[in-house]
Design a protein around this nucleic acid. Structure first.
Lengths: 205, 205
DNA sequence: CACTCGCTGTCACTAAGTGACATCTAGTGC
DNA sequence: GCACTAGATGTCACTTAGTGACAGCGAGTG
């Protein structure tokens, strides 16, 4: 599912190591050399891949959001969001690579309050997801991607996804609460329905 | 209006110089030493004020958003957003300090596509505004600040403000289009009305 | 006046990030 | 199979972002 270019895959691999190190040792205590060593590449290549240390986690944060955005891209116009996610979400979350990256992402989100640098990476990842969602919303609303209302709707939905992700992450990691995939799905649906500024959540064709 | 602590004011002053330099010379071509020299302080103090070079513009980006958030904090429950902004916006935008900072912010927003590092600063500033808006929304919706729907509404409204700001900035700077304060106000009202997920835009008392 | 206390400058230092160039590797054409 | 090219990587010297430690300075406060 949605494997990017060879280079992007390499970046994602390094990003996974960076995310693990940030989680285990903290952002400040992890150096570029540490990330390079863990990923088995030279430090120079780390800085070729990423423009800054915090940007090292962007791919792993992005990929979860982008996979969900890509999933929404497959949402048939004849279905409501409830119908679509009810049948597609279980297969989605049983993908192994997805689960591992999600855990890594959730851990990063849970330490956001301690690490301001990581928050900026998270917000950049959400911005990337927002850009992807514009196309999805435009298609579903039968409008163009440069339409302000389309972009507003995409931004609002992205904000909803971001909040749900942050909240679930905090609950799971810091609160020790177990959240089932059904609960998570229900919350994301509810939040997207509330936030969507265009009538795209029910069948549109 | 809303002058923070002495230290915050100093930070804002340095931030103005940084924003001007980033606009004039570009982000990469501006060093920490340049910023320090322009602000008349030592380089060491620059890094005491800001955790990174991109964070140097955060205060100047934040202050416009926070001033607007503070304005919304004064929004009486007996008025609709149209009524309130119609009478308060003109006084708001005629404040000199506000105008100068707004121009600086608008210039930064207009070069966001060239400078990814500055986008992360912008998103962090919007995040700060979102945190402020939570209180405003909670108050107006007669709910608590930890209520998910309150935070969702604040996030959606912040996203709307962000998009309007980005769009107007691009139009003004890159498109050479003149935008009157009435047009800007009308667009922000329309966007906030569309994005708000709780019924706070009309009178609530 | 003495006495904090928080802010700033100086300077030496570490770590983030870049430029330049050699090398390696994966195609691609023959 | 071989030669050729283009893009990715490693090495190393380098610049700039960012920190630690300590000394001074200036505004309260008793």
């Amino acid at each position: 599912m949605t494997d990017g270019s060879r280079l992007e895959d390499a970046r994602l691999d390094v990003s996974r190591h960076a995310a693990r190190l940030f989680w285990e040792k903290g952002f400040d205590a992890t150096s570029g050399d540490d990330i390079a060593a863990a990923a088995g590449i030279s430090t120079r290549t780390v800085w070729r891949y990423f423009r800054s240390k915090e940007a090292c986690v962007e791919p792993v944060l992005k990929v979860s959001e982008l996979r969900f955005a890509a999933l929404l891209g497959q949402w048939p116009k004849t279905e409501s969001i409830d119908q679509f996610l009810a049948r597609s979400m279980t297969a989605f979350v049983s993908d192994d690579a997805f689960v591992r990256d999600s855990i890594a992402a959730v851990r990063i989100l849970a330490i956001l309050h301690r690490e301001p640098a990581l928050r900026s990476a998270w917000l950049m990842a959400c911005h990337a997801a927002e850009m992807e969602l514009i196309g999805v919303v435009a298609d579903r609303a039968a409008r163009t991607a440069d339409d302000f209302e389309v972009r507003l709707c995409a931004a609002a939905i992205t904000a909803a996804m971001r909040l749900v992700d942050e909240e679930i992450s905090a609950a799971v990691i810091n609160g020790g609460i177990h959240v089932t995939s059904e609960e998570a799905t229900a919350r994301i649906i509810s939040a997207i329905r509330a936030a969507a500024t265009l009538p795209i959540c029910d069948a549109v064709a």
